[in-house]
């Protein structure tokens, strides 16, 4: 054994960062291969969101109006966010699948970093979502959505969006490890997230809501993400731009996501360390 595998106090192998990285890279590779081999998944991950954009943008765009721009421009951030939430069931189902077929037992019997399997899956799902986002962007442009800001702000918005998807994936990983059933893991989040979605600024301008509802909708973490996207893309805001949650949407969104990751990542990794196939 070489020097890098000397034992530290707890008796574990020394914390060698680069092996953790190579573990993650290997497992991300595994999931990218999966994507290539499941063209049907790629289709469902692009066609459905594209349909969403057309449906919401064109149908609602003709009946709802917002100040400071078109409804199409307003709603894109909402649709992007909504679609990113499908990372929850997606990752949950994949995690359950790994538990079912005994792969987790095999991975856990290897001298590898225990977070790598989850990183591989969440990052793999993120790659799929990046394709989704590209497809949606194209359709969005076709129905009249425009980015009004510069290159870096626009790129920042995409980064926020993908980070949001990544965060949702970790929630999915926790759910999958806890529920251990694909169906439960898929239905639980929609029950939870649907009300959150409609009580946010995703589809409606919050300025017109009654006071208490407006407070909820403004402080909703989903609203933070949606508001951040709108401000970075220069799209119409959900309410008066001087409102605190709109003005500081980007730091709020980043704060929310950091908080969620700080909770879900350790919980998922701890759960995973004790998980065995059944």
């Amino acid at each position: 054994m070489s020097a890098i595998t000397t034992l530290n106090g707890s008796g574990e192998l020394g914390n060698v960062k680069w092996t953790a990285l190579s573990d993650c890279r290997a497992l991300i590779g595994r999931h990218l291969r999966h994507l290539i081999r499941m063209p049907e998944k790629l289709v469902s991950a692009t066609l459905m969101p594209m349909g969403f954009v057309v449906l919401f943008g064109l149908l609602f765009g003709s009946v709802i109006s917002v100040s400071g721009g078109s409804y199409q421009e307003f709603i894109m951030a909402g649709i992007f966010t909504q679609v990113m939430m499908t990372c929850v069931p997606n990752t949950a189902i994949g995690t359950v699948e790994d538990l079912r077929n005994g792969l987790v037992d095999r991975f856990r019997s290897l001298p590898m970093n225990s977070a790598a399997v989850l990183v591989g899956r969440t990052a793999g799902d993120l790659a799929l979502r990046a394709v989704t986002v590209l497809a949606m962007t194209a359709v969005g442009f076709a129905i009249g959505w425009r980015i009004e800001t510069g290159f870096f702000a626009a790129l920042g918005a995409y980064a926020v969006l993908l980070l949001f998807g990544f965060t949702m994936s970790w929630i999915g990983a926790v759910l999958g490890l806890v529920a251990r059933s694909g169906e439960a893991a898929a239905t639980m989040p929609s029950l939870l997230l649907m009300p959150l979605m409609f009580l946010s600024s995703a589809y409606i301008p919050t300025g017109g809501l009654p006071g208490w509802l407006q407070a909820i909708a403004n402080w909703n973490p989903l609203s933070a993400v949606v508001n951040a996207l709108r401000s970075l893309w220069g799209n119409p805001a959900a309410t008066d731009a001087s409102v605190f949650t709109v003005q500081y949407a980007v730091p709020l969104a980043l704060g929310w996501m950091a908080l969620i990751l700080l909770v879900t990542v350790p919980v998922a990794v701890r759960r995973y360390r004790r998980a065995v196939a059944r």
Binding site: S22, A26, R33, H34, L103, R106, P111
Partner: peptide, 30 residues
């Protein structure tokens, strides 16, 4: 790093080829 485990249920990644499965395990063994 010194053991090999073949569990009760065949633990192969169904969407990888046999070769890819083995290479993945080798990589994870560093």
């Amino acid at each position: 790093s010194r053991i090999g485990l073949t569990g009760q249920y065949a633990a192969v990644d169904e969407r990888l080829t046999g070769r890819e499965n083995l290479e993945l395990i080798g990589t994870l063994h560093h």
